[in-house]
Design a protein around this nucleic acid. Structure first.
Lengths: 230, 230
DNA sequence: TCTTGTTAGATTGTCGACAATCTGATTGTC
DNA sequence: GACAATCAGATTGTCGACAATCTAACAAGA
């Protein structure tokens, strides 16, 4: 008997590919917040009919990346400072919980994966690839959620992550500054390997705090010049 | 100047109505876990074409009530004991957070609404309407989430709620026992009106604990007789 | 008997066209 | 000129039909 682990084959529906395409376009800032998605135009560009496109858009609406108004259109969500603040504060709570759950489940495979993802961040940083840096940093951070063995928690975090990635991408897009050179994740990785869970939780909380402070100041700046009146 | 608060007009798309219909069918246990949804049959029953039905199903998939396998079908999610346990433990954390956020925002309108919802639960209990009792109890519980002024938190809880309602409905459906007569929410309401936040958080945690214990024992029972092999 | 190939039926995925609705520009009226 | 009514164009919502894929039953061969 051959014992081989096969990975599930790729989703071969147009719908799934459209979802992936659109999500990527939103998360990288290619599609701007508030922008309207014209179904006919997009379907022609993708060489696809409107049916699978619309189904894909419904998924992204539920995912929280798009918002839809009947007979008016579907739009990329707007990013307000309050949204970021809300996501941030919830993320703190979830982090604490995820670490608590992951803590007793850590093993060699966990540490290896932690290092692997950490390495990916460092590589993206060296390459000055800001988009990829955001992506890998979130993936590093997401390990505690994947390891926590709680499907609802993981799902919740993935929804949060989508938005966070969008926010960070926007931020980077706006102020096209060089990525921070020093390795801000070193301490986090070390603490996650250590024996003091409380310290890890505390650090995660503060670490996130720093990242968000940047974002918030940026977002608050945005709202000084609203595009439309209230 | 007339100052009137208008409620948003009803969604007039078939899609929205289909979503509501399907969601209700799932949450009340009319559609059983694992059951396959035949698009043609349902669309004929609803006198609707498959396009809006499929879009509605996509939404419910993202909402976590359905699960879809390409070219195979869309099914009502299965309920495992682990799912319930996951939702339960996350709910504890979220409750604590929601109470913390809501606490300083409580005002007379909050207390009034709290009483109103509490009354709704008591009425459903008197009428021996178990389905409605579940619904109102979750709405009472949801007030702290609506009041916490955190859109992401609210959205997360609403997703959790859908499943919880489904779980509870299943439970009630299975053991068709009379509803508990005594008012288990009295203490909760009193504490939410009081001045000791920690006590309220502690009570919420324990209160939920009791409800879930019932659910879990039921779900574990289910899994002793799996319908399909692993 | 077990395995493999074939085939018919059913079901899901996709398409192009039509219906319903919105937007804004235009016209007519005061 | 201000305002309401009307209308054309564009866009979204819905429909019925076709294509792609799966399932299960059956036949053929080792």
């Amino acid at each position: 008997m051959v014992k081989t682990d096969f990975s599930p084959i790729a989703d071969t529906t147009r719908r799934a590919e459209i979802v992936a395409l659109l999500r990527r376009a939103i998360l990288t800032g290619q599609l701007e917040p508030g922008q309207k998605l014209n179904e006919l135009r997009i379907s022609e560009q993708m060489r696809v009919s409107r049916a699978p496109l619309r189904e894909a858009m419904r998924e992204l609406v539920q995912e929280g990346l798009l918002t839809s108004i009947p007979y008016a259109g579907t739009f990329v969500i707007d990013v307000t400072a309050k949204d970021i603040d809300d996501a941030y504060s919830l993320n703190q709570v979830l982090d604490e919980f995820a670490i608590e759950r992951t803590w007793p489940l850590r093993d060699q495979r966990f540490f290896d994966e932690l290092d692997r993802r950490h390495e990916a961040v460092k590589q993206a940083t060296r390459n000055l690839d800001t988009t990829r840096q955001i992506e890998t940093a979130l993936q590093l951070h997401g390990l505690i959620y994947e390891w926590a063995d709680n499907s609802v928690l993981l799902e919740t975090w993935q929804r949060l992550t989508s938005r966070l990635q969008m926010y960070f991408a926007l931020h980077q897009h706006a102020r096209n500054e060089p990525v921070p050179a020093e390795d801000v994740h070193e301490t986090y990785v070390q603490l996650m390997k250590g024996t003091d869970m409380r310290a890890a939780q505390r650090h995660a909380r503060e670490h996130i705090h720093l990242d968000f402070e940047q974002l918030l100041s940026y977002a608050r700046g945005l709202e000084q010049r609203p595009s439309r009146g209230a």
